[in-house]
Design a protein around this nucleic acid. Structure first.
Length: 271
DNA sequence: CTAATTCCCTGGAAGC
DNA sequence: TGCTTCCAGGGAATTA
């Protein structure tokens, strides 16, 4: 499932393919994504001026408009040959320069939307929290949030209005490395531990970007290659297995309707 | 205002 | 083999 590293990987590869190129043709085979895919004909004959990421949105920028692409849970973009047969769940097809790119999304939780050239005031963008890999995300910022909230720490760091890009996998992994129980009330986590958490969120996201992201079963980058960070996961998806640090059995609880794996010994609950 | 819950969706695994 | 049930979860919309 795409989180920040997977979106970053997709964005980077996409950029190498389409930067400066012109859109010739767009086919929409199924407009029923998270929201209906709008009429994209306004993009025809326009040049791609920039491709960047904000949160989990890929922003493709043209001279007077931008395209927002969100991969949702199972979205992926494939660089294909025009002669390749359409796969199941190929919903939108872009002909850009001499490339053919297809958006595939089995669960259709993703979205493809139009926005202003600078989408910062778009309703889906404007309320997003800080980027975790920038200096805006630091102890001071996160500690001020944790002190004001009554929620669990895991709930808080997965809230995209606080910090973007930290989904279920990386939340579990960074809490493990910081030795913080995911159920802990955010108020009760010391400033020292919040400092560690900030540090490890950045470190784990960066390491995953270097590994090309995490492929569980659905994620593939633009060239159809999986990410290799799964090999470095220490708690996510390891319920009932031995903790790599202390050999205790990894447990799993539900927090905010999301499964949350943790080591009861390495991440004791203080409350 | 915040926090918790609901809902969208399909594929794979497990149960019978 | 084939059906049914459960689970995975990003995040906006809805409810409390």
């Amino acid at each position: 499932m795409p989180e920040l590293p997977e979106v970053e990987t997709t964005k980077s590869m996409l950029k190498t393919h389409i930067f400066g190129e012109k859109i010739h043709k767009i086919n929409v085979y199924n407009k029923k994504l998270r929201w209906p895919v709008p009429d994209l004909s306004i993009l025809l004959d326009k040049d791609v001026q920039d491709v960047y990421r904000r949160g989990k949105y890929i922003v493709i920028c043209f001279d007077d408009i931008s395209l927002l692409v969100h991969l949702g849970m199972t979205g992926s973009i494939w660089n294909v040959k025009s002669t390749d047969v359409l796969k199941k769940h190929d919903h939108v097809e872009f002909f850009i320069g001499n490339k053919v790119l297809r958006y595939n999304d089995p669960r259709r939780f993703g979205s493809i939307l139009l926005a202003d050239k600078n989408p910062k005031n778009h309703k889906l963008i404007t309320k997003l929290g800080v980027e975790p890999l920038t200096s805006d995300f630091d102890v001071k910022y996160l500690y001020s949030k944790t002190q004001k909230s009554t929620r669990s720490i895991k709930n808080l760091i997965m809230d995209s209005h606080v910090v973007v890009g930290v989904g279920n996998i990386y939340a579990a992994e960074s809490l493990f490395k910081s030795m913080i129980n995911p159920m802990e009330h955010s108020k009760n986590v010391s400033k020292e531990k919040i400092g560690k958490l900030v540090e490890f969120i950045k470190e784990i996201l960066q390491q995953s970007i270097l590994a090309g992201g995490t492929t569980l079963k659905d994620y593939y980058n633009v060239e159809g290659t999986p990410g290799y960070f799964k090999q470095q996961l220490r708690v996510y998806g390891r319920k009932g297995e031995d903790c790599y640090v202390c050999k205790s059995l990894i447990e799993q609880v539900t927090i905010g309707q999301r499964s949350s794996a943790f080591c009861p010994n390495c991440q004791p609950l203080n409350l």
